[in-house]
Write a protein that binds this DNA or RNA. Structure first.
Length: 272
DNA sequence: CACACAACCTGCGAGC
DNA sequence: TGCTCGCAGGTTGTGT
């Protein structure tokens, strides 16, 4: 599920519900997710207070009043729920943070590709954060910057955009969508993309992410429903998953290919 | 250095 | 109905 807009939706919900709340207790399984839970995680954060949640790319960061930060990545199937009473834990519930005032943060992740880390000290020194390029929505991610990285690359644009060390936050859905919007084939080599196209691409990436976040925002108010489900937005997809249906611009059939083991969807006429 | 690919897990839907 | 296969929104480590 989670690319940048989904993580932002989670961040906003957390900001609303858990800011300035003290951590009373933490449960986590021994099994671990993609990586084991931090060493003595519970002992290290219990009694601390959560400050304003932040996000970098697909990472959600919960700063504490101790200068520590809880780092959360949702992988492919991670979900966060905010509950107002203690839930009975299911098989795929891996972490439950019990806050004061009967607030609970539940992390569920069937595939266990997500993970949790605890940052002590400088965030930029964290092994995960320091690999990231500029955040997609930040002012540092510009057409000029992007062109400077892209212009010498043999790789195709699809893999460049998925590379979090070049730009942080895009995943398979949004890369497919934005390449369609910009009229660039996913097979096009980086070095064959003009400065002008890079400007367009960056502009379209930001606009697409912002509109997805905006749509996600409309359902956030439901975050304390009894079932605790966070409302994810449903953006209108133009090509993703649309194999063999008609391109809504030109009517050609949308094609599907594999790149880096992942599926790319594109219109052979509108994208080149 | 730049890039491709397998591996990590589980659930679900398509097809037989 | 029930089984097997392939595929899924991500990232790391290894190998060429």
């Amino acid at each position: 599920m989670p690319e940048l807009p989904e993580v932002e939706t989670v961040r906003k919900a957390l900001e609303k519900a858990v800011i300035n709340k003290k951590i009373i207790d933490i449960y986590h399984g021994n099994k671990g997710l993609r990586f084991p839970f931090p060493y003595q995680f519970k002992q290290r954060v219990i009694g601390k207070t959560i400050l304003k949640p932040r996000r970098i790319g697909k990472y959600c960061i919960l700063p504490l009043n101790s200068k520590q930060k809880i780092l959360l990545h949702l992988g492919m199937s991670g979900k966060v729920r905010i509950l107002d009473k203690k839930p009975k834990l299911g098989n795929h519930d891996h972490m439950l943070i019990n806050l004061e005032d009967e607030i609970y943060i539940l992390l569920t992740d069937p595939r266990r590709f997500g993970f949790v880390d605890l940052i002590e000290g400088k965030e930029r020194n964290n092994k995960f954060i320091k690999k990231l390029g500029p955040e997609a929505l930040s002012s540092g991610f510009t057409g000029k910057y992007f062109y400077s990285l892209v212009k010498n690359k043999e790789r195709n644009i699809k893999s460049i955009l998925l590379d979090q060390s070049i730009v942080a936050g895009l995943g398979n859905i949004y890369v497919n969508e934005v390449l369609f919007i910009t009229g660039i084939s996913p097979k096009r080599k980086g070095k064959n993309i003009s400065l002008r196209k890079c400007f367009n691409l960056v502009k379209n990436i930001k606009a697409l992410l912002l509109s997805a976040i905006k749509e996600g925002g409309t359902t956030i108010k439901d975050h304390l429903q009894p079932d605790g489900k966070l409302g994810y937005f449903k953006i209108k997809l133009r090509v993703y998953g649309k194999t063999k249906s008609k391109c809504f611009i030109c009517g050609f059939l949308i094609k599907e290919i594999k790149q880096l083991g992942r599926t790319s969807f594109y219109c052979g006429k509108c994208q080149s």
